[in-house]
């Protein structure tokens, strides 16, 4: 019943949220980080982010983070399980890229 086996592919939003939460961040921080990482391509919408954060917390992939400053903003950080799942997905993604390069890239098509 492990999450790892049943859901082989993370959504793009979840992948980038987990990646961002290797460091504790609040909602705004996550959105900014993902915008920076993807050069403005992925702009997480508030409703989508909120839903994802709640689900990820419920499934134990992230947890609330108690920060020192007394700001009311909720911060989150990835859990051990979340990291494992992220790593599993990373090797899946590497495989996708490797095979894509093999079929579409090749030597005559370096700039693809």
């Amino acid at each position: 019943m492990s999450i790892k086996n049943n859901n082989p592919a993370l959504t793009e939003a979840v992948y980038y949220i987990l990646l961002s939460l290797l460091e504790p961040l609040h909602g705004y921080g996550i959105i900014q980080n993902v915008i920076d990482l993807t050069d403005n391509r992925v702009d997480l919408a508030p409703g989508t982010l909120y839903g994802a954060l709640n689900t990820l917390q419920e499934k134990g992939l992230i947890k609330p983070y108690q920060s020192d400053d007394d700001s009311r903003r909720k911060e989150y950080v990835i859990t051990k399980l979340g990291e494992e799942i992220l790593l599993t997905d990373l090797s899946r993604l590497k495989e996708l890229v490797k095979n894509g390069d093999k079929y579409l890239g090749g030597e005559d098509n370096e700039d693809y």
């Binding site: 959504t11 939003a13 702009d43 919408a45 989508t48």
Partner: peptide
């Protein structure tokens, strides 16, 4: 900045 509530199909469908 831009303002959308849902940035993927899944959360649009849920709504």
């Amino acid at each position: 900045g831009e303002f959308e509530l849902h940035s993927d199909l899944d959360s649009k469908i849920k709504h």
